[in-house]
């Protein structure tokens, strides 16, 4: 039986690159994502990497980007990725429920804005949904998400 385009999209594996300076977060994400059959973590980057170049090499579907990496302007990085790697979709995630972060994330071209306090499943689903072409936003009015 032939699969519809929607079914194909649902079954496709989404490739993720995590950009975060906290190795505890990175390793835990690597461990958790490995348990999801439809998600693959291609690599992890931090402030010591040339992020744009490495993303171009790894060619992920989604970049999960921590907004608060020291020495990295997360919003400018999203704009630059949008210009240079338009096929890559960025989900920004942060521990700060700040409305200005939320608005800047959307204005800079992010496909997702998720708080680090979100349930694990919500974070993983956000990556899935963004890879399928949805925009996922956790309104900063709702700091409980």
């Amino acid at each position: 039986m032939r699969m519809s385009e929607e079914q194909k999209a649902l079954q496709r594996t989404a490739a993720v690159v995590v950009v975060d300076d906290n190795p505890l977060v990175v390793e835990a994400l690597r461990r958790r994502i490995a348990l999801e059959s439809d998600l693959t973590m291609l690599g992890a980057l931090n402030e010591r990497d040339d992020i744009i170049t490495r993303v171009a090499e790894l060619r992920p579907d989604v970049v999960l980007l921590d907004i608060d990496i020291p020495g990295v302007d997360g919003f400018e990085l999203v704009r630059q990725l949008g210009r240079e790697q338009p096929g890559v979709r960025v989900v920004m995630f942060t521990g700060h429920a700040r409305k200005d972060y939320f608005e800047q994330a959307l204005a800079s071209g992010a496909w997702g804005f998720v708080l680090k306090s979100a349930p694990t499943q919500y974070l993983l689903d956000a990556v899935r949904r963004v890879s399928r072409g949805e925009v996922v936003i956790t309104d900063a009015d709702d700091p409980d998400r």
């Binding site: 977060v25 835990a28 461990r31 958790r32 942060t94 521990g95 429920a97 680090k116 306090s117």
Partner: peptide, 20 residues
């Protein structure tokens, strides 16, 4: 505001590991 970022950063890996 001070704890938000640190708590989030600590709780996220804890929750991910527990989930795994």
């Amino acid at each position: 505001s001070g704890l938000g970022h640190d708590l989030g950063n600590l709780l996220l890996p804890l929750r991910l590991r527990l989930d795994a």
